[in-house]
Amino acid sequence: MDSINRNQPEDNRQDLAATAATARIRDMSKDAGACFFCTTPLPDSDTGGTRPMSIEQADDDGVLWFLSAADSHKNAEIQADPNVRLYLQASKHSGFLVLDGQATVSRDRDRIEALWSPIMKTWFTEGKDDPRITVIRVQPRAGYYWDNKHGDFVAATKMALGAAIGKTLDDSIEGHVAP
């Protein structure tokens, strides 16, 4: 990632730590609603280790919560290697976040109850008491984000104006995320 930032103006960089980092993670997960959830594939697997997952919750500590089937490839891959990577995108032109974290799988009934929504019955046909339901908790360790400074409207206006006058009016901002 350093090579990407080598020519980045200093005013376009803002690393986030602690409270600011967890706020960014929470906001991005709400806006995105889903992510690409990447695990290390098992040696005999042809899954590729990447799949879309709905983010059920991002708590005040920036921890991300998911519901998953106990017999899924992802759960088996997490058991073998708990290191995961998540890719989030909030909108078409802004709000990108990649997170590296540690995943754990549990059958915490209280957490399942808190995360449950009726649409989940699509995957868990016996409802919130389906014995296949597990909870995946991802504790982010580090990440990187790309966004715009002033919101989509200002960024789009600057892009259109820059294209019309032939000048770069960059409204981007990026930096490391360290919860």
Rank of each mutant, 00 (worst) to 15 (best):
I55E: 02
M53A: 09
F37K: 03
K74S: 10
G48Q: 02
A80H: 04
L42R: 10
D27H: 15
A70F: 15
D71T: 07
L64N: 02
S54D: 10
D81P: 02
G62C: 02
T50W: 02
R51S: 15
A23I: 07
A34K: 12
C38L: 11
S68T: 06
K74M: 03
L64P: 07
A34C: 15
T39L: 04
N83R: 15
F36W: 15
L67Y: 00
A70D: 09
R24D: 03
V84F: 06
I25R: 01
E56R: 13
E56T: 03
S72C: 09
G62Q: 00
L64M: 08
S54E: 13
I55T: 03
D46N: 08
T50A: 12
M28V: 07
R85K: 11
T40P: 09
H73M: 06
Y87A: 14
P43G: 11
R26Y: 07
C35T: 03
V84A: 12
N83W: 09
A58V: 05
D81Y: 08
S68W: 00
A58Y: 00
T22C: 09
N83D: 15
Q89M: 08
D81S: 12
W65V: 00
L64D: 01
A80I: 02
S54R: 12
C38K: 12
A69I: 06
L42A: 04
D46P: 08
T40G: 13
S29A: 05
L42C: 04
A76K: 15
H73N: 14
P52L: 11
A23P: 05
Q79K: 15
G62A: 03
A58E: 07
D81Q: 13
L88S: 00
P43M: 02
T39D: 06
R24K: 15
N83G: 14
D59R: 02
S68D: 01
G33F: 08
R24H: 06
T50K: 12
L42M: 11
T50F: 09
G33V: 06
A23M: 10
V84P: 04
D44L: 12
F36R: 10
V63P: 00
I55M: 05
W65K: 00
L64G: 13
C35N: 03
A80S: 12
P82C: 07
R26C: 09
E77P: 01
A76S: 12
R85P: 14
C38T: 11
G49C: 08
D60I: 01
L86I: 11
S68I: 00
S29G: 07
G48W: 05
L86Y: 09
E56M: 15
M53H: 07
S29K: 00
G49Y: 07
Q57S: 05
I25Y: 08
N83K: 11
A58F: 02
D44T: 07
P43I: 02
I78H: 11
T39H: 02
D61H: 10
D46F: 08
E77Y: 01
Q79E: 06
T50S: 13
V84S: 01
A58S: 03
A69V: 05
I55W: 04
V84I: 10
Y87Q: 11
K30C: 06
K30V: 04
P43T: 04
D59W: 01
